[in-house]
Simulated scan of single mutants.
Amino acid sequence: MAKLIFLPRLTGFILLSLFLSFSACKQKADKAEKMEPSNGTAMASQEPFFKLSLAEWSLHQKFQAEGGDPFQFAEIAKANGFEGLEYVSQLYSKQIETLGFDKVIDSLKTMSEKHGMQNVLIMVDGEGELASLDEAERDQAVENHKKWVDAAATLGCHAIRVNTFGTNDPEQWIPAVTDGLQKLATYAATKNIEVLCENHGWLSSDAPVLMKAITAVNMDNVGTLPDFGNWCIKRNQGERWGACEEVYPDKYEGIKMMLPKATAVSAKSYDFDENGNETTLDYPRIIKLVKDAGYTGFIGVEYEGTRLSELEGIKATKDLLLRSAKDLE
């Protein structure tokens, strides 16, 4: 009788153990299946092929006309979903005059660290003509830029963006700008800083001529910063800014020519239609050019329109960039 009682209990215990083991295995399998979409590969596919930075010029109305505090730049960029910062030197003119150059740079570094932002580059304006036909004037411009090279190194940026004004005669401009860039880049190399030329008016917006100059410079730390806009090569009465008289004929080909030497890219925007597309620039076409070139660095959002507010324009540009990249997947 004892055996008759023991065997069913033993059998029941075995069956219960098998059932519990099966249930545990099934729960693990179910859990793994649910977690699969969140693995590293799936997460990576949701990210764009580039990183997002904010060009401070997008906020120039706030910091200039409205008297806002440019030391808030890192905080604003962080709040709007950016990872990197692209500074504009002229937006700190008053602060430099009041506080001193070094204090301003130290403050920018403190703010970027506070908000966990990466400093990408400094867009340098108003420091003289690197392509002046007068060598003494050209050399002075080189000297004026050196403090911004030092500032970029202090902030942890990889580059400064320079202007290349001086003359609009290609035959004279190429040797002049080659000399200016070589002298500045020689100093910048000692600080591990790149010197970048943007299509930013005059002959810098004539892509074939610009690339001839970059080739002539022939230095590893001299490259380009293709801007989606900025293709005016001649303005009214020879002005640097204002009404445009002549535009480079194929901006997409211009961007393509500049990309092989690019270590930064600027996503310029002016206005958007009801579908969120830029009204003057084919963003999907440009983003494909950038991806096909193998570029994976920062793309800086630079809204320059007037219809939308600066923050609205920044968001619209950022959204269009991300959508254009996703459509390429």
Rank of each mutant, 00 (worst) to 15 (best):
K315N: 07
L121G: 00
D327W: 03
C244Y: 13
T154A: 11
K51P: 11
L18N: 10
M117W: 07
E312T: 09
L16S: 13
L203H: 06
C25L: 14
A176V: 09
A141F: 01
T178F: 07
G297Q: 13
N192S: 11
N119G: 04
L16D: 08
G276C: 10
H158Q: 10
D292V: 08
C197F: 05
Q182T: 14
F71G: 00
N163V: 12
V209T: 12
I214H: 10
E274H: 10
A65N: 06
S107Q: 12
P208K: 00
P249M: 11
K234N: 11
A65Q: 04
K212C: 01
G254V: 03
Q140P: 02
S23D: 04
H145T: 04
L4A: 12
L85W: 03
L155M: 04
K109R: 07
V247Y: 15
I255F: 06
A267D: 05
G305D: 09
K114A: 09
G156I: 02
F82R: 13
A207E: 00
K26A: 10
L281I: 15
E86G: 12
L259E: 09
G300W: 05
Y187Q: 12
G294V: 08
M257P: 01
V247E: 14
A264K: 03
K183V: 12
A325T: 07
G100H: 07
V217T: 11
A325K: 02
F19R: 04
K31D: 15
Q237Y: 13
L20R: 02
Q72V: 00
H115Q: 10
N80D: 07
M258I: 05
R235P: 06
Q61E: 11
A74T: 00
N144F: 08
S112P: 02
M43E: 15
D220A: 15
I299C: 11
S266E: 09
D102Y: 05
V195S: 09
G297V: 12
L59H: 01
S309I: 06
R307T: 14
T279L: 15
L181S: 08
G201N: 04
S269N: 06
R161D: 08
E239Y: 04
N230A: 07
Q90R: 01
Q90M: 00
I233N: 02
T186Q: 13
I193S: 01
T317I: 06
P70Y: 00
T317H: 07
G180I: 03
S23Q: 06
S107C: 02
P284G: 12
L20N: 01
K109D: 03
T317S: 14
M257K: 03
L52T: 14
N163H: 11
Y303L: 07
F63T: 00
K147V: 02
D139F: 02
W57D: 02
S204A: 11
M211A: 00
P48A: 15
L155F: 02
D139S: 09
K183M: 08
L225M: 14
K212L: 03
D227Q: 06
R138N: 10
F272Y: 11
A65W: 01
L99F: 07
L99N: 13
